[in-house]
Amino acid sequence: MFAPQFDYYRAGSVAEAAALLAEHPEAKLLAGGHSLIPLLKLRLAAPSALVDIGRIDSLRSIREESGTIEIGALTTHSELASSELLRSRATALAEAAGMIGDPAVRNRGTIGGNVAHADPASDLPAVLACLGAEFRVTGGNGDRSVGASDFFEGLMSTAIGEGDILTSIGIPTVDSACGSAYAKFAHPASRYAVIGAAAALVVDEDGSCTCASVTLGGLVPAPVRATAVEEALVGTRLDAAAIASASGLTGDALDADDVLGDVYASAEYRRSVAQVWVQRALSSAAARCG
């Protein structure tokens, strides 16, 4: 409950933050603090300094521009959950954000901090991977845009390098025949995801599935796409039977060695029941199509 000592610098702009990071290489960025401060309180992290980017207002926005929904890194989970734009065009993201922790956590935790921290039990990585998000990074290693599969490198590790700042996340917009959803098996104590399943579906005029994206989180070090499930769905009419049979292939997406387990839910169990949450996500996503 009593953190070790560190210095503190408040950045007024992204450039200033980048300069502070360059000046203090051992410093860590502080956004909403809802992953970092818990670590500090338990003395599980001991950075020499924090660079507070929490007041860079330019990083707090949700905008649609030229085929992309651009979400500033400092956008809070509450803002994601209540955004009309997201609710209609990237429903799974709004839905997942609304399931994070509790209201007070959602008021301060940010999307940027969530994905930068890349906790395997987080909700947003799987959803963002499912929605084909691009992560815009600036700073130490130059400006770049990284796709989800490259961004999430593994357990608590991302493409954000030393001195880098994640500024925004872009989600390609989709037409209205697309529905997406997130289903979560929440840990009863931490409320983080034991299993998280995100699904996005596109159907044609006849109601036949033309494109499916299904991603799993919570039970794996970094989000995993359930390609077999996706393939099985394309061309179907997304009825209950089609969804059930495709969901049954979830286990194929999961390399048994990669699945995480803990004292609450073993890897074997998670792998066996993950399909139930895939099925739930698919059913809601399908219902939202059209």
Binding site: M1, L30, G33, I37, L42, A104, R108
Partner: peptide, 29 residues
């Protein structure tokens, strides 16, 4: 203060009218 892991909510206050866990916010923030 009821916990050290930001779970319990005993420390909830309003910051600019919005609820926050005051144990998960630095005074400087």
């Amino acid at each position: 203060v009821g916990c050290d892991t930001s779970q319990c909510g005993s420390c909830t206050v309003l910051i600019d009218g919005v609820a926050a866990k005051s144990c998960t916010c630095l005074a400087v923030q």
